[in-house]
Design a protein around this nucleic acid. Sequence first.
DNA 1: ATTAAATATGTTACATTATAACATATCATT
DNA 2: AATGATATGTTATAATGTAACATATTTAAT
Lengths: 164, 164
Amino acid sequence: MSEISAAFPSPGHNHDHCVDQALADARSVCRRRGARFTEQRARVLELIWQSHRPLGAYQILDQLRTEGRSAQPPTVYRALDFLQDLGLVHRLASLNAYCGCVAPGAQHQSQFLICRECGVVAELREQAILRVVTEAAVSRGFRIDETSIEVAGICPDCARKPSR
Amino acid sequence: MSEISAAFPSPGHNHDHCVDQALADARSVCRRRGARFTEQRARVLELIWQSHRPLGAYQILDQLRTEGRSAQPPTVYRALDFLQDLGLVHRLASLNAYCGCVAPGAQHQSQFLICRECGVVAELREQAILRVVTEAAVSRGFRIDETSIEVAGICPDCARKPSR
DNA sequence: ATTAAATATGTTACATTATAACATATCATT
DNA sequence: AATGATATGTTATAATGTAACATATTTAAT
């Protein structure tokens, strides 16, 4: 696999394509793993992919409810757990929110750039970052299981619009 | 400033020294910044420093209460906010918990190695990590405000004890 | 087709983490 | 002693997440 790390989605990109891709990937991952891609799960994933902004569990819940589905917190958290287990969504600990994974299926320890202005997230997979973190850990005798690397700041688009 | 990053505290280290150091540092930072190092704040900091394991806000609250202090959540969160503002404690987003800062006062974007077995945390300040993260961000036009880099795994001491 | 097992969802209740809002107290300076 | 700023007390509630058990749906074997 090539090491092309995604940047921020351009404001004018065809987002329908992102959604279609995400749903197709999900179906494929589920098929491969013998997991069921149910209506609920598909809908939760679709809601998460409605933008590149992470969504809180209760935001998802509210949207499900306005669609007339009977929904309680466990409905959402179960779907989220499922999607996380399959590597289809990520939980951002610094936000208590969930975003779609840009390259599901693959092994990954991603890193996240989070814009405080517009909320958009860019998921990176920089081998260089993982490498240097691993080095630091190893040199202290620490065995890494999982990384949570989240960086808050200002994205290029918001940087262009000054004074807000 | 030298780039000596702390490793895991050795199991047999003199922890009283850590506590004394932390309290002394806190007093000094407060004096320098014209902030009041009140009894409450001191006590909260001391509780956080009772070990190298991060403590949840409600764990702190419980301990304050067993000491006979009247205490409610805001008591604790205010102290924590104060201590965080002064760089005396860190919040670990992946745990919703708080740990003492090992080198308060200085500028810092630290990284944390968190043992899932024993809960001990090592705070690193690896320029190399910060550098490569910054590079990745800059190359995408992202301006970093704050990093949250937390790594879960197994610390050297727990790795030595097998089968647990 | 029928049943049994596994998996998924519904539902109620509650646990955990964090904050808002306003009253009171303490401190630092005049 | 009076004032303003800072800190704490107190009540209530918001936001996030989970436990536990009932029901439904799917899958696969009979």
